[in-house]
Every structure is written in C-alpha cells, then in structure tokens.
C-alpha cells in the first residue's frame, strides 16, 4: 500500500501496509535513522520530527495519516548547526541518543520565537522540552544552548 510522504523537501513513496509508524517508515524504508525509538509509546521524545512544522512523536504517528511535510534531524542539520555547536560547547549531549529529538524540537521553538525576557525564555524552553527525556545531561546545558541561540539569531523573539 503506497503513500507519498514529503520528507525534508523530497516526495518519497513509502509502503504503509500494516500501519507502520512514521518512525518505522523513516528508519526502515528511508534509512533516516536520526529519529530514535526509545519507548515506542510517545513518552520520551527521542523520535521527534516536525510534521507541518509541528514537533510530533513519530513513533506513534501512523505514516498513512501524515499529509503534511516531514522534517527530520537529517534535514535540519544545516538550520540547526549553530544550535548544535552550542550543544557541543556547553555539554548539552553526552550519549547523544536523545539529541536529534531535542535538536528537532528546539528548531521548532526557535522558529516560533522565544520570549525576550531571560527568565521567561528559560521557563518557556524548560517547559516546552519536557517531553524530550534526557538521562545524561540534567537538561540545563540544553536549555542554555537554545536560549543562547535565540539571543544570537536576530529574528528569534516573540
């Protein structure tokens, strides 16, 4: 059963027989393995991709119901480069398994704009990223990185 997904700007024909999740299709059919499956129940955020620009748990999203463009960590690698450099500079990842999901989600936050006030911005990011579990870092370097990038990208404010 064929279905067309637009992934990172390219239309891709995928097989959706058997109700595969978007994560399974990305990983197994398109070999885009940055989205990780750590729980398979939409509870940890490691599989986060953007669907229509919105952060989405790809592990519980049936691929057949996806009609909007999908953006993956692979596709966002350039857009996220400054953010990822901050991740590297501040210790915002250790094992790296949750990191693509964190980065993808953070890309959406930065596109949407963050509060200008430091405290409010930090609270916003902490709360927004609470669906992305990280067991290594204790989170704060992740939050620091996202907030710093918001400072550095002139267009990021709301």
């Amino acid at each position: 059963m064929s279905h067309t997904l637009v992934v990172d700007g390219r239309p891709r024909e995928v097989d959706v027989a058997g109700l595969p999740s978007l994560a399974a299709v990305l990983r197994e059919q398109l070999h885009l393995t940055a989205a990780k499956v750590a729980c398979g129940r939409g509870e940890c955020g490691a599989c986060t991709v953007l669907v229509g620009g919105r952060p989405t748990m790809s592990c519980i999203t049936p691929a057949v119901l996806v009609r909007e463009p999908v953006e993956t960590s692979e596709g966002l690698a350039d857009e996220s480069r400054d953010l990822r450099e901050h991740f590297a500079d501040t210790g915002a990842f250790q094992c790296g398994f949750c990191t693509p999901g964190q980065v993808v989600h953070a890309c959406a936050l930065l596109r949407a704009g963050l509060p200008a006030d430091d405290g409010a911005r930090r609270e916003h990011v902490r709360h927004a990223l609470s669906g992305n579990i990280c067991r290594c870092t204790g989170y704060q370097a992740i939050v620091d990185s996202v907030c710093s990038v918001a400072d550095e990208r002139p267009e990021v404010h709301s």
Binding site: T33, A34, S73, E74, S80, R84, E85, F87, A88, V103
Partner: peptide, 12 residues
Amino acid sequence: RPIDWDARTSGR
C-alpha cells in the same frame, strides 16, 4: 567540544 559532536548531534 566532544570530538564527534557534529555527527552525534545531527543523528548521523
């Protein structure tokens, strides 16, 4: 920086 930061943060 971690020596493999680019690959690891982008999911490669």
